[in-house]
Design a protein around this nucleic acid. Structure first.
Lengths: 210, 210
DNA sequence: GAGGTTAGAGTCAGTCGCTGACACTTGACA
DNA sequence: TGTCAAGTGTCAGCGACTGACTCTAACCTC
């Protein structure tokens, strides 16, 4: 019950400090304009130390995203079995936004995290990585959905297709939110809800009916 | 009617040679394992010349994709007005695969292009860029769809949502194709068709009905 | 067809992200 | 208390990419 030792705590402190410094610099100066040397200078460690904690500049930018995504996956797995695929996904996303504070506040303020997210959306090279990461997550999500619905992922393409459509909407959501003025969690939550509502109608063959 | 002059033709020749050398090296040695120095050595030009023709290593990897995508956009715009959004998109993709030869064969063989595509799908850093590029294209597609349907993109989210779902399916298609054995155009065309057929059913709330 | 103009290519020096190798310091633990 | 090893610093080097400068040859004009 002694918890992590002094060495471990020191290491964690260094990592957290690097992360905060990096995100603060990224969101104020811009990602491309921030050099690793500037980050390590702010924390007063060597460049090598940065690369021991993070595989690269990019990884630092996505460290918080990773925690949030892990939370989302857990939320999805805990959804009631009665819900259909899209209802479960919807519940898990909205729930994750409601609980974003608990996911990350121990390391960085929510406000900095939201600024980071917006920076990712508006920085081409990071947006690219963001997209690839969400694809990797799609595969996991499809697995969970297939299990929930009791279908075989290897022979049934519906889980992947449904998740792909859902993720497509999430992507648009992120884009629209990032392009707007309101950076708040409430804002992205609301946009998410609206866009998910539009998924059904949008796929109808004739839009003029509605 | 004299066409491009000698200078212009020389320039184009250098570019084409660089492109072919790059794609050949990328697909045989691997993208990350290929250095720009190796590419320029194969063509016997200076490194600086490479960077005058391509903004970076990545741009070379996507040069052919860009041509194919341009063709797709044109095909989409030329679809009969009677078709619904998804039918038009479907027709444009399948048509583009049928005509991929005409799009690119003047510069690289179709077979090399397909190998390149597979390499993109299996190289993380390129996959990331590929995803970002398709998002950028989504925006254009949404514009065309909105126009076709006579709705306002600024106030109506259905074009973007429909396109997002469609693109999601295209992404899965690419992934599944790239992971398989058959690298042929016929193969990806068939997969595309199947997966698009699954989009409707996959979004139904209860999969057990079908 | 000579001569000035300029686009395209070469050279060189430098920045930035990132890595491997080696040495040092200081918690951890017997 | 002494040994071990995790975490860090230092240094040298690679690969992608850029800016500044020079040179060459296609071009355009007279």
């Amino acid at each position: 019950m002694t918890g992590p030792g002094l060495r471990e705590r020191k290491k964690q402190r260094t990592r957290d400090a690097l992360l905060r410094a990096a995100l603060e610099l990224f969101t104020t100066k811009g990602y491309e304009e921030t050099t690793v040397d500037e980050i390590v200078e702010a924390v007063d460690v060597s460049q090598r130390t940065f690369f021991r904690h993070f595989a690269g500049k990019q990884e630092a930018a996505f460290a918080m995203q990773e925690m949030v995504e892990a939370r989302f996956m857990r939320a999805l797995r805990e959804r009631p079995a009665g819900e259909g695929p899209l209802a479960a996904l919807r519940g898990a996303v909205l729930g994750s936004w409601d609980a974003v504070g608990e996911s990350i506040e121990a390391i960085v303020p929510v406000e900095l995290h939201m600024r980071t997210y917006q920076m990712i959306e508006s920085t081409p090279s990071l947006l690219a990585v963001h997209m690839r990461r969400s694809i990797e997550m799609e595969e996991q999500i499809a697995g969970v959905i297939a299990e929930r619905e009791g279908v075989d992922l290897a022979t049934d393409s519906r889980p992947r297709v449904a998740v792909a459509a859902f993720s497509g909407v999430m992507r648009v959501t992120g884009r629209m939110w990032g392009a707007g003025e309101d950076i708040s969690v409430a804002s992205i939550r609301a946009i998410t809800e609206t866009y998910l509502d539009h998924l059904g109608p949008a796929l109808a063959e004739d839009w003029r009916e509605h």
